[in-house]
């Protein structure tokens, strides 16, 4: 097992002040279990304090640090150098910001902008079914929950949206589809019609061609394509 690797990061930079974009190479000796966020930090500390990148939890639980590495959208806080080298079979990595929204600076994409599509599908209970007994929980058995609980694990990292064969311009995106499917399947939601309308609209699941890239890239290992297919199958009425 190697202890460290000589790697090259080819990072797409963007300077909003001069509206200029270029690719900058950073060479470094990287320890095998450093994560890509650690590499960015290292670049900031040792080579170039101006490189902008974003992260928050660094636990793989918030979906802030998404970038494309050699074309694959992924969480930079979960990608170890060693794993990257063996997966991509190279020590040269092209790193780009996520393309679902315009870049603000360097690797920081405007996630706020990307989120507008999630907001459009109303990611909450629109009209709650009154609980069985006032002041108690709705009875949902573990078994009933199991059917859709996987979909609730989505952290809106937008990896799936970035990988999807359909373009972001006209598709609300796999994660927005999930967000609304959760509530269609949730027995606590009474307002199903509004949701189905969005789901089956021109920007909804008819833009999905079952390319299943969403399932492939999802860092939370959600079978996104399965949930979208449930909608196509007509399980929700």
């Amino acid at each position: 097992m190697r202890e460290s690797y000589k790697i090259t990061l080819k990072i797409r930079r963007y300077d909003p002040d001069n509206d200029r974009s270029w690719i900058q190479d950073y060479h470094m000796e990287a320890g095998r279990i450093l994560r890509f966020v650690d590499l960015f930090r290292k670049i900031n500390e040792e080579q170039d304090p101006t490189l902008a990148w974003d992260s928050s939890c660094e636990h793989g639980q918030c979906g802030t640090c998404t970038v494309k590495v050699n074309g694959k959208p992924l969480l930079a806080c979960e990608l170890l150098v060693e794993d990257a080298v063996s997966y991509f079979e190279t020590t040269i990595f092209h790193i780009e910001p996520l393309d679902v929204a315009p870049a603000i600076r360097d690797l920081v994409a405007d996630m706020e902008n990307a989120y507008e599509k999630v907001d459009q599908v109303m990611p909450y209970v629109i009209e709650p079914e009154p609980p069985f007994e006032e002041g108690n929980e709705h009875p949902i058995t573990a078994h009933e929950l199991e059917v859709y609980v996987d979909a609730t694990r989505c952290i809106n990292c937008f990896c799936c949206a970035s990988a999807c064969i359909s373009s972001h311009n006209s598709f609300l995106g796999p994660n927005a589809m999930l967000a609304t499917i959760i509530r269609v399947m949730d027995p606590r939601e009474r307002e199903k019609d509004k949701r189905l309308k969005v789901l089956y609209s021109d920007q909804g699941i008819s833009r999905c061609h079952s390319s299943m890239a969403c399932t492939f890239v999802c860092p939370k290992e959600i079978d996104v394509a399965h949930f979208i297919a449930l909608a196509k199958e007509g399980r929700f009425k």
């Binding site: 694959k72 997966y87 064969i165 079952s210 390319s211 299943m212 890239a213 492939f216």
Partner: peptide, 12 residues
């Protein structure tokens, strides 16, 4: 195939 999966290539 590596970045988006086999099914994605097939979809294309």
């Amino acid at each position: 195939a590596k970045t988006r999966g086999r099914a994605y290539v097939i979809a294309w």
